[in-house]
């Protein structure tokens, strides 16, 4: 954009530089101002055409979802769609919670305590998107009793933490809150 401005005003200036007129600096300023005006106008015009690509108001309005968790049996997982991506709502049993806590200090690529990943220990809410390249991991599989991603072999534990395989980070915890004992609001 800078170059365009200089080219427009420079082009105008270069051709008239031959003529020897008094008030050269005044004329140069005029051409610079005009050229700058055209350049600025062009730049300002571009913004709406880029911003229209951003999420529209109706998409932004669906930024949050409420989920009824009352019917999820112990040990089972509910998968819901949030912002177009799957969310795992896992109703963990005592064994799974224990296993997760026991490994809190085990060596792992992305160390995190289980307590930091849940609000209520029996409810694990996380994005079902493998942090490697985005496949949806399968539940109750893998060497660590949690999830296993069939695409490239990443294995997550019962807290959704990456333990083995190419994925760099633990399964992401979305923003969520308990509205009451049976409803959570995600996003």
């Amino acid at each position: 954009m800078q170059r365009f401005v200089t080219q427009v005003s420079g082009g105008i200036m270069a051709t008239t530089q031959g003529a020897a007129h008094a008030g050269q600096t005044r004329r140069d300023f005029l051409f610079l101002a005009a050229g700058a005006g055209v350049g600025i106008g062009a730049a300002l015009t571009v913004w709406p055409f880029i911003d229209q690509l951003n999420p529209s108001a109706d998409v932004l309005a669906l930024a949050s979802t409420e989920v009824d968790i009352s019917k999820v049996p112990l040990g089972q997982q509910l998968t819901v769609l949030w912002r177009g991506k799957p969310i795992f709502v896992k109703h963990r049993n005592a064994e799974e919670i224990e296993k997760a806590r026991a490994d809190d200090n085990a060596p792992m690529p992305d160390p995190q305590k289980d307590a930091d990943r849940v609000k209520k220990p029996e409810w694990l809410v996380m994005l079902g998107v493998c942090t490697h390249l985005g496949c949806v991991p399968l539940g109750n599989q893998g060497a660590y009793g949690g999830w296993f991603c069939p695409c490239h072999g990443s294995a997550y534990d019962t807290s959704g933490r990456i333990r083995q395989g190419p994925a760099p980070r633990n399964l992401e915890i979305p923003p969520y809150a308990f509205l009451n004992d049976t409803r959570i609001k995600i996003g």
């Binding site: 709406p48 911003d51 951003n54 108001a57």
Partner: peptide, 13 residues
């Protein structure tokens, strides 16, 4: 109408 109301600068375009 979605363009006119919800898309950013949709009304302008």
């Amino acid at each position: 109408e979605h363009i006119m109301r919800d898309v950013n600068y949709g009304w302008l375009i």
